[in-house]
């Protein structure tokens, strides 16, 4: 029993707050707890979950990757264009499309990693400009047009049901489990946490900070690329704004899940909860009957207040810590 209380105390307050919001929705809109709605929430959150787990490792190391939305879009457009041109009825082409999408993501990610990790430019500016470049290139690829109408085989990758759930959910789960294993059980994962805690300490204890930072952005880019191609398969269309806003949602999901901006603590497990919470709240707002525009205001204010609470909490903790030192 005591153990349970300790575990419950570890759950970040933000998750409790979101949980409260869910209870309110469940009361206001009885349909909210319908299994179909719940499965739909999971299905909607899958792509964000994949992208947000990349964002989590970036934030764990104390940095941000704002280019993930742009990377997802660029990967979606390249893979979509490839499938459109070579035909999407053969399994090999579909696999190749996924490989291309992931490679595009990793390529942009390695540009980020090279500039930020190795040459130590400002992470925010670099990813902001690669975001703009990726969105721009996605426009260039098809002159701003949408490609739609893919074969059933390709659409089934995300939409086919397996054990009652869309395959997309299972794919997201598999990816997240791999990332959880990497962050909690490998040396690389430990190094990410160490760098996020204190880059200087990590460097002085012999961690190759440059290499780790480079790999972080490559992984985040690759995951965003995978997410982008899955989005095409799910929505049956590749549009140059398909990933628009994912960077913001991903940051929000990570922060709700209890990983602070300062890095070094938290983890991907929290992000899973954060992502599902975010989409549950979106679905709840919709079921209660708010228009799309009002939803955007609510979500924006919600995320902003979450960030404010999180940062104030962290600052208070930091102050407490320094007080202890100077006593």
């Amino acid at each position: 029993m005591n153990k349970l209380i300790v575990v419950l105390k570890k759950v970040p307050g933000l998750i409790w707050g979101s949980f409260l919001a869910l209870v309110v929705f469940a009361i206001l809109a009885p349909k909210f707890l319908n299994p179909l709605n719940l499965i739909n929430i999971l299905n909607n959150s899958s792509v964000l979950l994949i992208i947000a787990s990349g964002m989590t490792i970036a934030i764990l190391s104390g940095q941000l990757d704002i280019s993930v939305g742009g990377i997802a879009t660029l990967a979606a457009m390249t893979a979509g264009l490839y499938l459109h041109n070579v035909g999407d009825t053969s399994a090999i082409n579909i696999i190749l499309a996924f490989v291309i999408g992931i490679l595009v993501g990793m390529a942009v990610g390695s540009l980020n990693g090279l500039l930020i990790g190795v040459y130590q430019y400002n992470y925010w500016l670099v990813t902001f400009s690669t975001m703009s470049i990726s969105y721009g290139l996605s426009q260039v690829l098809t002159n701003g047009n949408i490609i739609s109408g893919y074969s059933k085989m390709f659409r089934n990758i995300a939409n086919h049901r397996f054990l009652g759930m869309p395959q997309l959910v299972w794919i997201a789960l598999a990816v997240v489990i791999v990332i959880i294993f990497i962050t909690y059980r490998t040396k690389f994962g430990m190094h990410i946490y160490a760098i996020g805690d204190s880059e200087q300490c990590a460097a002085q204890s012999g961690i190759n900070v440059k290499r780790i930072r480079f790999s972080i952005f490559v992984i985040a880019g690759g995951l965003a690329g995978l997410g982008g191609v899955l989005l095409v398969s799910r929505t049956n269309s590749a549009s140059p704004i398909i990933g628009f806003g994912y960077e913001f949602d991903a940051i929000a999901a990570v922060i709700i899940g209890g990983t602070p901006f300062s890095g070094g603590s938290g983890g991907v497990i929290g992000t899973i909860v954060g992502t599902v919470m975010l989409y549950a709240i979106k679905a709840g707002l919709q079921l209660v009957g708010f228009s799309v525009y009002v939803q955007q205001v609510f979500i924006g204010i919600f995320i902003l207040s979450i960030i404010v609470v999180d940062v104030i909490n962290q600052n208070r903790k930091k102050e407490k810590g320094s007080r202890r030192v100077y006593k």
Partner: peptide
């Protein structure tokens, strides 16, 4: 004109 966004992004990288 679809290239404009790419160019602006490149200008930021160039300037840093």
């Amino acid at each position: 004109s679809v290239w404009q966004q790419v160019i602006v992004g490149l200008v930021i990288l160039l300037s840093i």
